[in-house]
Write a protein that binds this DNA or RNA. Structure first.
Length: 239
DNA sequence: TCATTAAATTGTT
DNA sequence: AACAATTTAATGA
C-alpha cells in the first residue's frame, strides 16, 4: 500500500473543542498548558493514510482526537501484523519519543480521523518540568503494559466470541482511551481487521455479546453495557 | 425544512 | 464473496 500522505498533510492549530479532547492538558499548570497548546498541531488523516511509519525519525508525540487508527508492524514476509486499534483519547509513541529513536510501528488511519501531534522537543520540555505530565506518561506506560499482556492472552484464544469481547474491553479502556465514552464508533469491518476475524464472524460474536447484554450493537458503533463482563466473562465451550 | 437519492453499514447465506 | 435490508449522509428545491 502506497498511501503516505503524512508528509504532505496540512497541519493547523487545534480548535477549542479539539483541545477538550486532549486528556493530559488538564494535568498541566496554566503556564505549561499555554506552551503545549501553542506547539500542538492537528491534522486530518483520510482512511488509509499513514500517520507515521517504521524507521522514520520521531517528530511528534501523537494522539487521536477523533476517528480510529491501527498500530501494526511488518514482518519479514511483507505481511503486516496488527497490534491494536487506537480510538479517541489515545496517545502513543512515548517510548520511542523518550529515547528519540525512530518509530517502531506503522500507524495507519482506519477511517477519516483527526490526529494531534506534540513536537518532540516540547514533549521533552514537559517531561523535564511538569509533574502532571510525568504522572500522565507514567500512568500511560503502566496501563499499556497491562494491555500488551492481555493482548498476548487474546491471541492465544481460539473462541472467537471471547476474542471479540476482550478486544472490545481493551478499546473501551477508560485510562488509555478517555475519549471513547459509552459508545465506541467502529464498524464491524474495522473491528474484524483489528481482531483478525472475518466480518461475518465478528457480526455473529457481536450478536452473541448483545444477547448476553454486555453490549448493544448500533449502526456504525457499539455501546458497552457491562465492561466488567467484557473483560472477565468466560464462555461455555459446548456449542 | 423536507423529500429524494446516494453511500455506508449491517445481517444473512 | 455476494446479496438484500437498513441507516445515515448528501443534495437540492
Amino acid at each position: 500500500m502506497n498511501t503516505d500522505h503524512s508528509l504532505h498533510q496540512r497541519r493547523r492549530p487545534p480548535t477549542a473543542q479539539e483541545l477538550d479532547n486532549i486528556p493530559w492538558l488538564r494535568l498541566l499548570t496554566s503556564a505549561e498548558r499555554a506552551r503545549a497548546v501553542a506547539d500542538l498541531r492537528v491534522g486530518d488523516a483520510l482512511a488509509g493514510d499513514l500517520v507515521c511509519r517504521i524507521g522514520r525519525p520521531v517528530t511528534y508525540w501523537f494522539g487521536v482526537v477523533e476517528g480510529l487508527l491501527k498500530m501494526s508492524s511488518d514482518n519479514i514476509d511483507g505481511q503486516s501484523m496488527t497490534f491494536t486499534g487506537v480510538p479517541p483519547g489515545g496517545w502513543f509513541g512515548e517510548g520511542t519519543a523518550l529515547k528519540r529513536e525512530s518509530y517502531r510501528y506503522n500507524i495507519q488511519a482506519l477511517r477519516k480521523s483527526v490526529v494531534a501531534g506534540l513536537p518532540i522537543d516540547t514533549f521533552h520540555q514537559l517531561l523535564d518540568r511538569s509533574i502532571g505530565f510525568n504522572r500522565f506518561v507514567m500512568n500511560q506506560l503502566n496501563e499499556r503494559l497491562g494491555q500488551f499482556i492481555a493482548a498476548r492472552e487474546i491471541d492465544r484464544m481460539n473462541n472467537p466470541d471471547l476474542r471479540v469481547a476482550r478486544s472490545l474491553a481493551a478499546l473501551f479502556n477508560p485510562v488509555l482511551y478517555p475519549g471513547v465514552g459509552d459508545v465506541l464508533r467502529i464498524t464491524q469491518q474495522e473491528l474484524a481487521y483489528l481482531v483478525g476475524l472475518s466480518r461475518q464472524r465478528v457480526n455473529e460474536a457481536l450478536c452473541s455479546l448483545q444477547a448476553k447484554e454486555m453490549i448493544r450493537v448500533e449502526y456504525g458503533g457499539l455501546r458497552v453495557l457491562d465492561p466488567d463482563a467484557l473483560r472477565s466473562s468466560v464462555f461455555d465451550k459446548a456449542k
